[in-house]
Amino acid sequence: MANMALTEAVYYILLSLTKPLHGYGIIQNAEKLSGGRVRLAAGTLYGAINSLIEKGWIESLPEDKSSRKKEYVITQTGREILIIEIERLKELLRNGEEILGG
């Protein structure tokens, strides 16, 4: 489990949820962070949100009566997972640059 790579979608969802956002907010934020490269599709995002809630990496906030939109936020476990993933990504980058002399 500790050695598993996160998908790009999950990585950007977790990063986006360091502040509370609703579904569409996550899509917009991931697109902004990646300079327009990552466009999460709604069906994929919905499935990922449900899996992440089940794993306890994110949680949904109590619903606001004035808005029908559900907001989500990262949990402590989710943050730890992100930190491990960032270490893994650094390793990938380090090795790539060393070997290709980047």
Binding site: R39, L45, G47
Partner: peptide
């Protein structure tokens, strides 16, 4: 409003 896709990775396409 941008390209319309329901799935943006292979995993969710396979699940469907």
């Amino acid at each position: 409003e941008g390209a319309f896709e329901l799935f943006s990775d292979f995993e969710s396409r396979i699940k469907h």
